[in-house]
């Protein structure tokens, strides 16, 4: 547990030192949202709003995760092996990415509220959907980014591997969020939420079990 916290602090420090990553992400979000605003010119319908939000979050997270193991798998790979084992690394990395993707999706939501208004009726359900979606994204993207970095120097590979695997997560999340927009109550959405929670836990466990095979030479 202590190792995980130490790793988390380390990842956060690394991110703060490399603040250009965070800024480029912010500019991406702002730029794309404004581009949509310019091109559409009017308030999109609820389902279009939801689709655009998820497409932006989708590409933002893929871009974000492509840098996920940049530091750890480079020349510092062997050094990193001596300070933390694979299981601690994957848990810390997944937690870190969950937080990052939560931030990313909430920021997109805020930007969309500014430009296109906020059609969300059931905010609690929408937010739970965002948390669960960010968790699923983080699990899939952390593992695929680990795979891509272990193959050395192929940055597009991460996206190729991750995109098809993300579809089940994104489909469920966007369904939940659409329900939150039209104002379905929490109990009525319990079936979808339960499925997404199960999926998140299942793939999280799988990534935890598989990562040690990846994180060795």
């Amino acid at each position: 547990m202590q190792t995980i916290i130490r790793l988390l602090v380390r990842f956060i420090r690394q991110e703060v030192r490399n603040s250009n990553v965070l800024f480029s992400l912010g500019i991406y979000l702002l730029g794309v949202s404004y581009l949509i605003y310019l091109l559409s010119g009017s308030t999109p319908s609820d389902s279009v709003w939801n689709t655009l939000l998820w497409v932006i979050v989708f590409f933002g997270s893929v871009q974000l995760s492509s840098r996920s193991f940049e530091f750890e798998s480079g020349p510092y790979f062997y050094y990193f092996q001596t300070i933390a084992n694979a299981k601690h690394t994957i848990i810390a990395k997944m937690l870190f990415n969950v937080a990052y993707m939560m931030f990313l999706s909430t920021a997109t939501w805020a930007l969309f509220s500014v430009f296109f208004g906020n059609p969300v009726y059931n905010t609690a359900l929408f937010f739970i959907g965002l948390i669960l979606g960010a968790t699923g994204f983080s699990v899939v993207l952390t593992l695929t980014s680990g795979i891509a970095h272990r193959t050395r120097g192929n940055t597009t590979l991460g996206a190729i591997l991750a995109i098809p695997l993300l579809f089940p997560v994104i489909q469920l999340t966007s369904a939940i969020n659409l329900q939150a927009i039209v104002g379905v109550t929490l109990t009525d959405a319990a079936n979808l939420l339960g499925t997404l929670v199960t999926l998140d836990m299942g793939i999280g466990l799988l990534a935890y079990l598989l990562f040690p095979y990846l994180w060795q030479d």
Binding site: V140, L143, T144, I147, R150, T151, L161, P164, L165, P168, L199, G202, I203, L206, A207, L210, F211, Y213, L214
Partner: peptide, 16 residues
């Protein structure tokens, strides 16, 4: 090894 890791993860996602 790496493709086995992906294969296992991918198969589970496909079944889902």
């Amino acid at each position: 090894r790496i493709s086995a890791v992906y294969n296992i993860f991918a198969f589970v996602m496909m079944i889902v």
